[in-house]
Design a binder for these strands. Structure first.
Ligand SMILES: [Mn+2]
Ligand SMILES: [Mn+2]
Ligand SMILES: [Zn+2]
Ligand SMILES: [Zn+2]
Lengths: 139, 139
DNA sequence: ATAGTAATAAGAATGATTCTAAATTGACGT
DNA sequence: ACGTCAATTTAGAATCATTCTTATTACTAT
């Protein structure tokens, strides 16, 4: 019988994703985000993974989130000047911010739509990223 | 001969726009933004209008910008977590952030396009605002 | 002019995020 | 296993755009 804590692991996360070594802290951040549709903030991630890693620091959560974003494992989402939120959905999608409840919802694009088709862009423009944000009420 | 400083005014800005009283400070902020396509930050506005109003404070610039935004006279534009920028273009448009030069460009939509047509939104959704941001290079 | 309200100014406070420096961990070769 | 080196984590300090506080000044209306 060992005490390495690996024997009863429930969700298996690979050693490495997109070239990023998945340390215990990164695993917990990633696992939590994968189970959330709410686009949590860094602080919400911090509070939640403290259950599994009581000694984790907020700086590490920021470090993990930055590493995961840079390796395109998760996405960072910003609403105006509010604290950044994090999204595990890698499909191209927009974000709807419901003013009534404060909740955030992923918005898919209708099938067959190319965002660049509707934009009046100069020729030969290289687009690295598109962000679409909506604010309103889910009537 | 008077010293009220109003006799040689070059650009006439009305006393009131969209129900907002145009104080001297608000006029200068607004006048500067109207002459800029660069989407300046609050600090850039501050530095520029100090020529005309040497005693203006940065807090006042923030106050003015907030008032102008709330009365839909200008628009606030955010790129990730960078300082907010301000835009005098009230037409519906997106923003392209050129990584090479750091410049920001307004992006028009192709004629006859309704943004909501391409989004897979739940029925009866009230949309108060849409923001489209692109990042890349103007090849 | 007086009173009441709105706006401005200067500086302090805020808070999400980043930085610093020291300790810990992991990977790799011996 | 051991030593070495790089990567990662940690706690706390620092950063800095923005907001807040409070006193002063400017309008507006009687
Ligand atoms: Mn947070
Ligand atoms: Mn600024
Ligand atoms: Zn999302
Ligand atoms: Zn613009």
């Amino acid at each position: 019988m060992t005490t390495n804590g690996l024997q009863h692991r429930q969700t298996e996360i690979p050693e490495e994703i997109n070239g990023l070594r998945m340390t215990r802290q990164r695993q917990e951040v990633y696992r939590f985000l994968m189970g959330e549709r709410t686009h949590p903030t860094a602080n919400e991630v911090f509070i939640s993974i403290k259950e599994a890693l009581p000694h984790v620091s907020l700086a590490t959560v920021y470090n993990c989130l930055e590493a995961l974003v840079q390796h395109k494992i998760i996405r960072q989402v910003n609403f105006d000047r509010e604290p950044s939120r994090y999204c595990p959905n890698l499909d191209e999608h927009g974000h709807f911010h419901d003013e009534t409840t404060g909740t955030i919802h992923d918005i898919k694009f209708k099938p067959g739509i190319n965002l660049t088709d509707i934009l009046d862009l100069p020729p030969n423009t290289v687009i690295k990223d598109i962000e679409i944000t909506l604010r309103g009420q889910l009537a």
